[in-house]
């Protein structure tokens, strides 16, 4: 029969050493090395994929932001994360009549903007979608419409 007490006593030293070494290696050195390389190679992604628009930071392309004015595409509010940055193309089309009448843009032009920003279609199992922030920045930048003048 193995002497458990003796076994424990003998192992305390090496066990604590291994615990501390693994703490420093996995908990400190590893994330710091990754942070260093990430900031060096992919600075934009590493800091949250922030979007610059006319020299100002207006948000992140990966995180939804609130749009409530009728002239903009609105994000969804029932997603798992609560910050889903995308809407399905179907959803975008369903918002076109509202935007068209609020901003006075033709539905064809709006549909064109949605199509230009469509992603995800080539995943055969995915649903085609569009990023809400990109859609709205395209509205401001590309339509030349008076309704968006204040947002430039």
């Amino acid at each position: 029969m193995l002497n458990i007490k003796g076994e424990l006593r003998q192992n305390y030293g090496p066990a604590i050493r291994l615990a501390v070494i693994s703490l420093v290696l996995c908990g400190l050195v590893f994330p710091l090395v990754i942070t260093g390389f990430a900031q060096l190679i992919f600075p934009s992604q590493a800091n949250g994929s922030l979007v610059q628009f006319h020299g100002k930071t207006v948000g992140s392309s990966l995180i939804a932001q609130n749009f409530s004015l009728p002239i903009f595409f609105h994000p969804r509010n029932d997603s798992a994360s609560g910050v889903d940055p995308d809407i399905t193309v179907q959803d975008a089309y369903s918002q076109i009549p509202r935007i068209a009448s609020a901003a006075g843009i033709s539905a064809d032009r709006l549909q064109q903007i949605v199509i230009q920003n469509e992603e995800g279609a080539f995943w055969i199992f995915g649903t085609p979608y569009a990023n809400v922030l990109r859609l709205n920045l395209a509205l401001i930048d590309q339509t030349g419409n008076a309704a968006y003048k204040d947002f430039q």
């Binding site: 994330p31 990754i34 942070t35 390389f37 990430a38 900031q39 190679i41 992919f42 992604q45 590493a46 800091n47 949250g48 994929s49 922030l50 628009f53 100002k56 930071t57 207006v58 948000g59 992140s60 990966l62 995180i63 932001q65 609130n66 749009f67 409530s68 004015l69 903009f72 922030l133 709205n136 920045l137 401001i140 947002f151």
Partner: peptide, 28 residues
């Protein structure tokens, strides 16, 4: 990181002016 996952220790980012003029906290 290349695909867009953040890696930084600088704290949450504050956006002072979203497109509609609101504030937003980006949790990095």
């Amino acid at each position: 990181v290349g695909l867009g996952v953040p890696q930084t220790l600088t704290g949450y980012q504050s956006i002072t002016h979203t497109v509609e003029g609101a504030t937003q906290t980006i949790l990095v």
